[in-house]
Design a protein around this nucleic acid. Sequence first.
DNA 1: GCGTCGATGGCA
DNA 2: GCCATCGACGCG
Length: 185
Amino acid sequence: MRSKRLNSVFYGRDAADLARDLIGTILVRRVGSKELRARIVETEAYVGEHDLACHAARGRTARTEVMFGPGGHAYVYFIYGMYDMFNVVSGPAGDAQAVLIRAAEALGWNADLSGPGKLTRAMRITRAHNGVDLTGDKLFFLGNPGRRPRIVKAKRIGVDYAKHWKHALLRFVDGDSPALSRPVT
DNA sequence: GCGTCGATGGCA
DNA sequence: GCCATCGACGCG
């Protein structure tokens, strides 16, 4: 079954909706003459400047600049001295929301994509991709070609500093996937 | 199987 | 000093 490339209308919605709807979609990464594909199984929504877990909560800075732009662009940042995190900017320009891509299943190649740092390393996504248009040819998503996944909501990982926002159920997983970064408990 | 900890560098 | 992580290590 052939699926359509996700477009700016899809990305222009709230991060929580986008995070949920990205589960089951296919991430395509073209590098040289190769094409790496992966089925998204885990995401997290960071819903704007009022969300204390969202990087944009600390204002507009050089790092968070792309989050304040229009949806459908990559926000890639470097953390812990060795990992790049891949996010999809969500919502309209001026509304700093994004979806962190946390885990996926490799399609047609062998890789462990069960974590945000593992996923970017294996798919060769780096800070060089910060700001790239996800409706372009190097990095994009295809709509879910299969059956509707069983979506499970949970608390986001690693945001205990975020006061009451740490309890928000903004992590979305495919409840039937064996490739999650962590169990949902 | 579990919890703890070090690596490693950009950021505010 | 902290961090939207990962993998190695020690346990018993």
